[in-house]
Amino acid sequence: MNRRWMLFATAATAAALTAPLAATAQDKTPLKIVVGFPPGGSADTLARLLAEGLRERYQPVVVENRPGAGGRIALSQVKRAEPDGQTVIVLPSGPMVLFPHVYKKLDYDAVTDFTPISLLTHFQFGVVAGPSAKAKSMAEMIAAAKAEPGKGSYGTPGQGTLPHFMGVLFEQQVGAKLNHVPFQGGGPANAALVGGHIDYKFDVVSETAELHRTGKVRILAVTGAQRDPQVPEVPTLKEAGVDMVATAWFGMYGPAGVPDAARDRLQQAVAEAMKQPALRERLQGLGYEPVGSTPAELAAAQKADLDRWAAPIRATGILLD
């Protein structure tokens, strides 16, 4: 009797110990985060930091880079994905608020083809001079561009992206002309800047903050209303005499039709991750303001920027195929 009881008790104890583990494993579903830019850029960095914060809820979490066309290739992939809450995209606001005004034809509808999950962060941009540029200040950059229109060049992560239009609006604001050189992401643009193949770059501050600190490039100004904590010595455009303020955000979306339960689970996981002190510190160190909003708040931010950018883009006359 005692031996049979001991065998039963041992089996029961083992079952009790393994049951919670099995349940936990079953509760953790896979998650794929698609990024429309190459590894090493701002979108990729954010996605990988967020992936670490989501692993308490999802397992495995895989970041997949599908660069090209300013994020449109990745968006097309996510649009066609199964709407089960296991495939999402992390991207800057440009493809969702600029591209509908910029391109004659898009193979996605920025509003109806995707499910808003969460607004992740706010951020600003930098105007960066490389070693081929002689300008050491915004005043010198503007003077050089006016003296020799079209001679200077600036790189961005792609045609029709937010940094591209930052450059266009900057040219309009100061009355100068620069040549735009699009790349497939911030990393390749950085390489060209450091290598002296382009003179300037408009992009997220975090892309060039370390290069600025080591003297390989010079961030001449930032585009937000406040200085960026990554480079507090760098003035805003307004402080440098250019009447221009422009910021943007990163968001997470799934394909259209993600069930409310799966959408809400994702949003709650993102909100919890954004509260983690270590993740917040990393993001703030990169110049990002962590948010972790509701789906409705992301949808509202997207609509507001869609409306805000319509007139300025029309004024540029830029319309791409």
Rank of each mutant, 00 (worst) to 15 (best):
Y200F: 14
E207S: 09
A246Y: 14
P235K: 11
A240R: 01
A246D: 11
V204F: 12
H197D: 11
M252G: 02
D199K: 02
V234C: 12
P235Y: 12
S206V: 11
G251L: 07
V204L: 12
K238L: 07
G241D: 05
A221F: 09
K216T: 05
G254A: 06
D228P: 10
L220E: 03
P259Y: 06
V234G: 09
G257Q: 10
K216W: 01
P255T: 07
D228I: 07
R213C: 00
E210Y: 11
L220Q: 07
G251S: 08
D199V: 01
L220G: 03
I219S: 13
W249S: 10
A246F: 14
V231C: 12
F202T: 07
L220M: 06
D199G: 08
R227M: 05
A240F: 06
T236I: 05
D260A: 15
R227C: 08
I219H: 07
R227L: 04
A221Y: 08
R213I: 01
T247Q: 14
A261R: 11
R213Q: 15
V242Y: 00
V234K: 08
H212L: 01
V204S: 11
G251A: 04
E239L: 01
Y253M: 11
P232N: 09
G224Q: 04
D260Q: 14
A256K: 13
D203G: 15
T236P: 06
K201S: 15
G224P: 06
G257E: 07
F250T: 03
I219Q: 15
W249C: 05
T223E: 03
F250G: 06
P255K: 05
K238N: 12
A240M: 02
A225V: 12
K216P: 00
E233A: 13
V222T: 15
V205M: 04
A221V: 02
G224W: 05
M244Q: 11
V222L: 05
F202M: 13
G215L: 07
T236R: 06
E210Q: 15
Y200K: 01
K238W: 00
A256C: 08
M252P: 03
D260K: 14
V258M: 05
E207Q: 12
V222H: 09
Y200G: 03
L211H: 01
V231A: 13
A248T: 13
I198V: 15
R227Q: 11
G251Y: 02
W249R: 11
V242F: 00
G241M: 06
D260F: 03
P229Y: 13
D260C: 00
T223W: 06
D203F: 11
T208I: 01
P259E: 04
A248D: 15
E207M: 10
P232S: 10
E233G: 04
D228K: 09
H197P: 00
D228V: 09
V204G: 10
G241S: 03
T223I: 04
K238I: 03
P235H: 10
R218V: 08
V204N: 14
D243Q: 09
L237F: 14
A261E: 15
D260G: 09
K201Q: 14
P255E: 05
E233V: 03
E210N: 12
D260Y: 06
T236Y: 08
A256F: 09
